[in-house]
């Protein structure tokens, strides 16, 4: 029985393309499984060519998967009813360049079956919210990439969807635009919307997501709550000490504790990293050598570190570069 709180469920999704004259097989997706629950914000990460856009296109029926299953709101995504509750922003969105933003939104609104009165009220509101009110009556052909991105975001929000599927929402935006979209996403989360978005801007993902799914060469290499993933691999702590007048013996004493690594040291302070299990041994050593513990915190990977570590493909590429 379908869980009503699971808005998107992807199971063992696989896609093989045939390319070239001889129809060579290229496996773009290899058994991708993921879920987006109500109110969740899932960041979809992976190096270029890892299969993010292909899987998003499979979810939204632009591409037919070779194997696997997608359920949107418990329904088959080919059912318009399932897609009615999804707001999709394609990567580098293209719209009819002869249309004005108001006309694009009017067209999209009709596809959702929104009545004229609602559209007349909602379209200017959305365009205003996305900073397009001054350009709403200009044809899109004169729009910059960032402005097109905003039109793309506006059309994805028009139907007040429960689930937003955004492929690279920050693409083409300037720093101010990125900040505005970030704030918009935070606001959407506050409203209880679910977000599923791909991005290369890891800092944004770290700020906006509860969980991430990292894809590499068409397969999921890491998945889960961000807090779990960033702690799961390394149960380490970071300790800061103020050193006594003669610092060297004290630092040596601290470094004798098993597993301790020196991060940096000045004449008065030292920063160390150690297995969390060794914290009591370290504090005992500090007491004996006169070093004063000023800060102790669990050590967290940054998302960037996790991403690089999990993206085998990237590691291989950098290894290949290092080879003479």
């Amino acid at each position: 029985m379908a869980d009503a709180d699971i808005l998107l469920e992807v199971e063992k999704l696989a896609k093989t393309f045939r390319v070239g004259f001889f129809g060579r097989r290229v496996q773009a997706l290899r058994g991708v499984s993921l879920q987006v629950r109500r109110g969740e914000s899932l960041g979809y990460l992976g190096p270029n060519g890892s299969g993010k856009t292909t899987s998003i296109k499979c979810i939204l029926t632009l591409i037919r998967p070779t194997q696997g299953q997608v359920r949107l709101f418990g329904l088959d995504p080919t059912d318009p009813l399932a897609r009615a509750r999804v707001g999709y922003l394609p990567e580098s969105p293209y719209f009819y360049d002869y249309l004005k933003p108001t006309e694009v939104l009017d067209y999209v609104g009709r596809l959702y079956g929104l009545d004229r009165g609602t559209l007349r009220k909602r379209i200017p509101e959305l365009l205003d919210r996305l900073g397009l009110s001054e350009s709403m009556n200009r044809p899109l052909r004169g729009f910059s990439k960032g402005m097109l991105q905003r039109v793309g975001i506006a059309q994805s929000l028009l139907s007040d969807p429960d689930l937003l599927v955004w492929d690279e929402p920050m693409s083409g935006l300037d720093p101010i635009g990125r900040k505005e979209v970030r704030e918009l996403m935070i606001d959407l989360r506050r409203q209880g919307k679910s977000l599923f978005f791909s991005s290369h801007v890891l800092a944004d993902v770290e700020t906006l997501c509860d969980s991430v799914c990292i894809l590499d060469r068409g397969a999921v290499v890491a998945q889960g709550a961000l807090s779990d993933l960033l702690h799961a691999d390394r149960l380490e702590s970071e300790a800061h000490f103020t050193l006594p007048i003669d610092p060297e013996p004290a630092v040596a004493a601290l470094q004798r504790v098993a597993g301790v690594q020196l991060l940096d040291q000045s004449s008065t302070t030292v920063r160390l990293v150690l297995p969390t299990a060794q914290v009591s041994a370290l504090t005992a050593a500090a007491l004996s050598c006169g070093a004063q513990l000023t800060e102790l915190s669990p050590r967290r990977d940054s998302l960037e570190e996790l991403f690089v570590r999990k993206s085998v493909h990237l590691e291989e590429k950098s290894a290949a570069k290092e080879k003479p």
Binding site: P80, Y88, Y94, L111
Partner: peptide
């Protein structure tokens, strides 16, 4: 070719 279809077909449109 211009991919305008990519933004339209995922709407509730067969």
């Amino acid at each position: 070719e211009r991919k305008t279809l990519y933004a339209i077909l995922p709407k509730p449109l067969r």
